[in-house]
């Protein structure tokens, strides 16, 4: 099984193609499990984090923290996220440790093209979601 770093080789060009030539940079994040940060030109504030376990490749884009949600609109936001989840192509909303995220998971056997597509789609979706849901944020 290829490691994450090997899997990401040459992927920047594939992602850039899908994002009309935006610059794409990779940066490994130190830690116990492999994580690579993908920074897309023009969207530096919304990096994508790619991590791999034995069973899957997970791509995550952090959206906002619990503290940023307008308290009175929190319950409504939860409902909206649940309802949106099945309709968004390839990406789903989630939350870990008070951080809301949009994420997509792939099999470890996924092709490079699929991974590039996943990352590009996630970036588009994240920006779109943030724009659409900013009304719930302080």
């Amino acid at each position: 099984m290829k490691n994450l770093q090997e899997r990401m080789e040459g992927l920047d060009a594939l992602i850039a193609t899908r994002l009309s030539g935006a610059t794409v940079g990779f940066q490994p994040i130190p830690g116990e499990v492999p994580v690579i940060q993908v920074v897309i030109g023009g969207r530096e504030e919304l990096p994508i984090f790619v991590t791999a376990s034995k069973t899957q490749i997970l791509c995550v884009c952090y959206l906002w923290t619990d503290a940023e949600v307008i308290p009175e609109r929190r319950a409504e936001l939860m409902e909206v996220l649940l309802e949106l989840n099945p309709t968004i192509p390839l990406s789903s909303f989630g939350r870990i440790n008070e951080r809301y995220m949009l994420f997509g998971a792939l099999s470890r056997e996924a092709r490079a093209e699929d991974l590039a597509n996943e990352i590009a789609t996630l970036s588009d979706n994240a920006l779109d979601a943030l724009d659409a849901l900013a009304t719930y944020l302080a």
Binding site: G31, S53, L58
Partner: peptide
């Protein structure tokens, strides 16, 4: 085992990202 290991891996990854 797979699910648990995956969950742990995800939490560890989030931790690294948060630290970073």
């Amino acid at each position: 085992v797979q699910m648990t290991r995956t969950a742990e891996s995800v939490y560890k990854a989030t931790q690294s990202i948060a630290d970073n």
